[in-house]
Simulated assay, not measured.
Amino acid sequence: MSKARRTAEENAHLDQGVHTDPAALEELTDAASSEATEVGADGAVAGYRAGRTLRLGVELRRQLRRRRTQLVLGFVVLLPLILVAAFEIGDASPNQRSGGFIDLATASAPNFVVVALFVSGSFLLPMVVALYFGDTIASEASWSSLKYLLSIPVPRHRLLRQKATASALLSAMTVAALPLVALIVGIIGYGAGEAISPTGDAIPFGRSLLAILLGTGYIIIQLAWVAALGLLLSASTEAPLGAVGGTVLVSILSSILDQITALGDLREFLPTHYSFAWVDLIATDIDWANMASGVLSSVVYATVFGLLAARRFATKDITS
Rank of each mutant, 00 (worst) to 15 (best):
A227H: 01
S275F: 09
Y148H: 13
A302L: 04
S171A: 15
G242Y: 02
S255H: 10
A32T: 11
V175E: 04
A4N: 10
L296D: 01
A243E: 02
G294D: 01
L124S: 08
A105K: 07
V300E: 04
S144K: 14
A109W: 05
I221K: 00
V181M: 05
G200R: 02
R6E: 13
T284Y: 05
S297V: 03
V129W: 03
Y301T: 03
L54N: 15
T261V: 12
W278Y: 14
T272G: 03
L124V: 15
T272E: 01
E238H: 04
T216G: 02
R67Q: 12
P240R: 08
A41W: 12
W143I: 02
S167R: 03
F205E: 06
L307H: 11
D30F: 08
L149Y: 06
F87C: 06
Y274G: 01
R312C: 06
R66P: 01
T20R: 11
L257S: 07
L229S: 03
S145Y: 02
R65L: 13
H157L: 08
V113I: 06
Y48Q: 14
L149V: 14
S142I: 05
G230A: 09
P110M: 02
A277I: 09
S255D: 12
L169W: 07
S320N: 12
A41E: 11
L233M: 07
T272D: 04
W143A: 14
L104T: 09
V299D: 05
E59H: 07
S197Q: 08
L257M: 10
L170E: 05
D285I: 07
I212Q: 00
A32R: 15
G206Q: 07
V299T: 12
W225P: 00
D258P: 01
L266F: 07
E10N: 13
A211N: 01
A164G: 10
G99R: 09
F123T: 05
G206Y: 00
G90W: 03
A310V: 07
V279T: 15
P271R: 00
T261D: 14
T69W: 01
A177Y: 04
W225I: 02
S139H: 11
E35P: 04
V226F: 02
T136E: 10
S108G: 13
S171D: 05
P198W: 00
L14F: 15
V72T: 15
V295S: 06
A141T: 09
V58G: 15
A50N: 09
R312I: 07
F276N: 08
W143F: 10
I152M: 13
S122R: 10
L178A: 08
A195C: 04
A85K: 08
V250N: 00
L170R: 09
A41R: 13
A109S: 13
I82G: 14
